[in-house]
């Protein structure tokens, strides 16, 4: 979002002068710079999670000390929190939809609900980590432990950053400080949010559902 501002100053002046025909907002691809870079960033993130998931898949059966995946996973609990996270994608879509209709009130509302659902998911993860720890699975206990906490922890951090982004958008929208296309700002956060959800679908399937 950082450079939306710079962009829009250009935007404001493009209706006159020789610069008109090739103003920066008329990009060669038709996608705005911000959106294109978000897509590229998410492409890069795929390999980050790819590396972490590979590490986990390699190590999930290796737990000489401490419990293994079959002994500690609580599938019903994680299914509920996964469902909550998936629902947050729905509310995110509603937020983007409201933003496109320039309905600030509902945009803020849906963004807040999305953030709350995300927070609920992170809360579930904290609860899960705590109970695993009490069942004897520490970060340093085994290869399974190290790789499990690293993979799901990285995902949790991504969700947390997403929540912060949502809250910041709500905050600056209420103060009317977004210097540009509001709908696009919401959409960018939405892209990130959906990506994090999709990654969770993969993690949930590979880590929790497929028996090791």
């Amino acid at each position: 979002m950082a450079d939306i501002a710079v962009h829009d100053v250009d935007h404001a002046h493009t209706d006159h002068g020789a610069y008109e025909d090739h103003a920066p907002h008329a990009t060669s691809t038709g996608l705005s710079n911000n959106k294109l870079s978000m897509w590229l960033f998410l492409g890069s993130e795929c390999l980050l999670f790819g590396g972490l998931i590979s590490t986990y898949m390699l190590y999930r059966g290796r737990h000489e000390a401490g419990p293994g995946p079959d002994q500690i996973f609580d599938i019903p609990l994680t299914s509920v929190s996964s469902f909550i996270l998936l629902m947050s994608s729905l509310t995110m879509v509603l937020a983007v939809n409201s933003a496109k209709r320039k309905d600030d009130r509902n945009t803020s509302l849906w963004l807040t609900i999305t953030a709350l659902l995300g927070a609920l998911f992170v809360g579930g993860q904290v609860y899960e980590f705590t109970s695993f720890y009490h069942e004897g699975l520490g970060f340093t206990t085994s290869l399974f432990g190290s790789s499990f906490y690293t993979l799901t922890g990285f995902h949790g951090v991504h969700v947390t950053l997403g929540i912060i982004m949502l809250m910041v958008v709500v905050f600056i929208m209420q103060r009317d400080r977004i210097t540009g296309d509001k709908a696009e700002v919401v959409e960018l956060v939405g892209l990130y949010w959906h990506f994090v959800d999709v990654v969770w679908v993969i993690i949930f399937t590979l880590v929790y559902l497929i028996p090791s």
Binding site: C46, L48, G50, G51, R62, F139, T140, S146, S147
Partner: peptide, 28 residues
């Protein structure tokens, strides 16, 4: 991002006691 993952694993091992490359624990 791939080297980022590798570096994270290594620093978690060296600084926080993770076991990613600890052959005693069966690491590869």
């Amino acid at each position: 991002p791939v080297i980022t993952v590798a570096l994270f694993l290594l620093s978690f091992q060296r600084n926080f006691g993770a076991t990613f490359f600890d052959v005693n624990q069966g690491a590869d």
